[in-house]
Computed example of a mutant assay.
Amino acid sequence: MARKSSTPTMWEVAERAGVSQATVSLVLNNVGGSRVAEATKVRVLDAVEELGFRTNAFAKSLRSGKSGMIGFISDEVASAPFAGKLLKGSQLCAWEAGNVILSVDTFNEPELEAAAIDMMLSYRVQGVVYASMYHRVVDVPAALAGIPTVVVNAQDRAGLVSSVFPDEELGGYTATKHLIGAGHTRIGMINIQPPDSDLPAGIGRLAGYRRALSEAGIEQDPRLLRYGSGIVEDGFDLTRDLWNEGDRPTAIFAGNDRTAWGSYRALESLGLHAPDDCSIVGFDNQDTLAPYLDPGLTTVALPYEQMARRAVELLLAAETPTQNPIECSLVRRGSVASAKVPA
């Protein structure tokens, strides 16, 4: 004797509710104008819950052309400790709109990326969020040309799809203006990339630093600018280098939180302490680092969840491609103090 399937069928739902299978289908697919009585809908939904019935989503997608899924293709976002908030924001926004996220990290492997795109097309995803772990200019794969796509935490080089990315210049401006507001006029900056780099993060943050100084009427002193690579060791070495200048800075804008950590360590090695001897502002707001420095690091937060939400909204709206810079907000902690008045 064949074993009875443990998976409840639409026929069993209909039998439990005392209606036809057609009525069950109308209720589950929320067909407008079906004139199914409210009491009947309640009986059907109760039967669905009691039996644990689940619709065949793949079969439904074949009929309707809509799967209720949104693809999320990234380099290493899902496995990154802080950029993973991009995936979280996408999931939450998709869920609110009645969709789920189908996510793949490709680790920059072209073959894996091609396979991920093929899989998502076979599942008839409504569109694809193409994400990057860090802000850069990307080339959207040609295989996505026929499907709605939005780039997030990056910018589409060709401008054929919408891009959502952090407003790096405004972030650098906000960080520097905060130090100026505390009375500092000798403000050093340690950038996170060399002068010839084309990455938007360092370019934008430096431009914001310069704009804030210019707006405040503070002369830009090239001796206060250093170029690192965004690692703790560079923050350490370049802070000590700044300290060897004849007219030392009273504040430092570090291009990211790891660089700021290096600045903390450099001050300590000199018998100094932030913010008493030098105020420090970082960038990123890494939640595994910034709150736990001593004192807690004042920094500018990358808006991962806000970017992801905006990307999904644009994807579902299917609007004309646009550029969407998202504000990076200041997170105040204890690393900034008022500038000391010379004796």
Rank of each mutant, 00 (worst) to 15 (best):
R211Y: 05
V281E: 06
Y264H: 07
E12C: 05
E109D: 15
V128M: 03
A266L: 02
Q286E: 15
A142D: 14
G33L: 09
P291E: 08
S263T: 14
T239L: 14
L112G: 05
Q306A: 15
T299A: 08
L102H: 02
T298E: 04
T174F: 00
E49N: 13
E327M: 07
D118W: 08
R124A: 11
M1W: 04
S263V: 14
E215Q: 13
L144N: 08
N99C: 14
Q286C: 08
C93T: 12
D118F: 02
G18R: 01
L293P: 01
E215I: 00
S25V: 08
E169N: 02
L316C: 00
R136V: 13
A97V: 03
S90R: 02
T288R: 09
A131S: 12
E76D: 09
A266R: 08
R265I: 04
P342R: 09
V129Y: 02
V312G: 04
R157C: 03
C278Y: 08
D221L: 01
G228W: 09
L272P: 03
G228P: 07
A94S: 12
V19Y: 02
E49R: 13
V312L: 10
A22M: 14
E215K: 10
K66A: 14
R240A: 14
L199G: 05
A114G: 11
V48S: 07
D257G: 06
D198Y: 07
G202L: 09
N56I: 09
E113A: 13
R54E: 15
Q193S: 13
L297N: 10
P325D: 03
G68L: 11
E96I: 02
S338A: 15
K66W: 06
R333M: 10
A337G: 01
Q220H: 11
A131K: 04
E313F: 00
G33H: 10
C328S: 12
I231V: 13
A274C: 15
L302A: 06
N108S: 14
I231R: 12
R210N: 00
V232L: 14
L179T: 05
A142E: 15
N30T: 03
T322W: 05
S64K: 07
D167I: 00
S25M: 05
F58C: 02
L314K: 05
R332V: 15
L242E: 04
S229Q: 12
D105P: 09
A22L: 05
L170I: 00
